[in-house]
Nucleic acid binder design. Structure first.
Lengths: 164, 164
DNA sequence: GCGAACTAGTTTGATATCAAACTATAACCT
DNA sequence: AGGTTATAGTTTGATATCAAACTAGTTCGC
């Protein structure tokens, strides 16, 4: 949970989001950047709570999905796809290997590169995480509305691709 | 900049975003959570570059705006409005005070609480940051399109307020 | 009034992340 | 072949963040 419930200026909704009462947000209220950040962090927190119920950090989900869908992927390719620096992935992969969810083999023809694959346990965990993520998505869907969903995602993709 | 340009799987657009080439994203491609994260991080990175040109971290902007719009605000109210834990604000406020952008006074009637206000220097810096943010917003506007902008923000606000 | 419960802000410890420097392998070019 | 350049992954150092424990000051209930 985030911050304790103050008596002045703001109160909390029932799930940790901040509800301003008498704060003047000025231009922030109408700016994409600020609202994008607030929405993302709320959504991330919510998914975080869900995924921790099955004992996995929220960051593991994208990683496992990408390895599952791209067997033998290298760490660098994975980091690019997941939008993280390759150095951030070192401890994550290490942890996944240690816990037996991911197998990691040197390539024969290029011994700098690793190939990552899910183990049976990794596939099982991914299945659980996917169920969890689907529930999360259903919540988001309900908030966004079916009609706007496609357009909304399209805009998000364009922002990720085109912003400079 | 984020990760170096790999030869397999993905390449980089001219500004740091990741452009997948032959990666299978599976369900991630259609999920709100993942796309929200990617968009937010790209946008944040972009703003970060801009704001660093005038020597301020991107996080300072919301803080200064909120103080400027709500003179005498307390740190707790500020943390709620900015969506950060109050403990995260301690070093931020400390830094702003040290650099003379923010003045911090104990309240008379409640000596636990601080009142935060912008100094003249703080106002000047905020003006610069605001110009910078406006340019950033114009970019985002161009990507989103005027017609969808209002609806888009509305959805972001709903996500921040209603997700559980 | 005085102890219990509460509140504002700080400290501490953990995590995630990036960026730059580094190691080892591989590819390239003459 | 041998030196130069590039790539895959790790290490290291810095930053931002949260959450829980803590300190100092306030309010409430009796």
């Amino acid at each position: 949970m985030r911050g304790s419930n103050g008596t002045r200026g703001a109160r909390r909704g029932r799930n940790g989001e901040t509800v301003a009462e008498s704060i003047n947000f000025g231009p922030l209220a109408h700016w994409i950047g600020f609202n994008l950040r607030m929405a993302q962090e709320s959504a991330f927190q919510a998914f975080s709570r869900r995924s921790q119920e099955i004992g996995e950090g929220p960051g593991r989900f994208a990683t496992l999905t990408l390895i599952g869908r791209n067997p033998g992927i290298s760490q660098t390719a994975l980091s690019l796809a997941a939008g993280r620096d390759k150095s951030s992935l070192t401890p994550v992969v290490e942890d996944l290997v240690r816990r037996g969810l991911v197998a990691r083999k040197r390539m024969r023809d290029d011994r700098r590169t690793y190939r990552l694959n899910l183990t049976a346990a990794g596939k099982k965990t991914l299945t659980q995480l996917t169920r969890c993520a689907r529930r999360h998505e259903r919540n988001l869907d309900a908030i966004i509305g079916r009609r706007d969903r496609k357009r909304f995602i399209q805009i998000l993709k364009r922002i990720a691709a085109e912003i400079e």
